[in-house]
Amino acid sequence: MNKKRYWSPVTAGILLGIALFISFIVAGQGMGASGAFARSTAQIAYSVDPNFAQNAYAGKYLKHGNALLNWTVIEVVGIFIGGFISALIARRIKPEVTRGKGYSSGKRLFFAFLGGVIVAAATRLTRGCTSGQALDGAATFSVGAWIFMLAAFGAGFFFAFLFKKQWKGVE
């Protein structure tokens, strides 16, 4: 489709690596994503019920005031803006449900949602996701990043057979 407008993986990888480096030497941390979703959830729960500030896990996000006043949250807002600008220039902004040929949208959206639930809980155990744990950790020589990456991609390949129809012909 619009593949010509995508960068080659090596170009994208080198630029992403340089951006990660800049992030590390400016802020002392790299790219993050899951933390912003965790903090958003905590802030929403707190605004519904202030007692949520006592929650065993989310309490740490709320004790310094608004959970959203945080580097990773602001950086994720940036990711949204940057992704939007790039897609706007490349004319790639269009509503879409990516799925295999003949696969129902409803089922696809159900699995997207359920996958999100599963991924969220997993990122709290692993203290980060593919960005904050795998990329950042590997670039800064953390052993944990490799444990996470091998486990995550290993499981992805292992469980792939369950979702063959959903991704049939998708590339």
């Binding site: 699995f111 997207a112 996701c129 290993g154 992805g156």
Partner: peptide, 16 residues
């Protein structure tokens, strides 16, 4: 947690 993450990633096609 990494293995659970992998299941969710292939199920959804996304990461955060």
């Amino acid at each position: 947690g990494g293995m659970i993450f992998g299941l969710g990633m292939v199920m959804s096609g996304w990461c955060p």
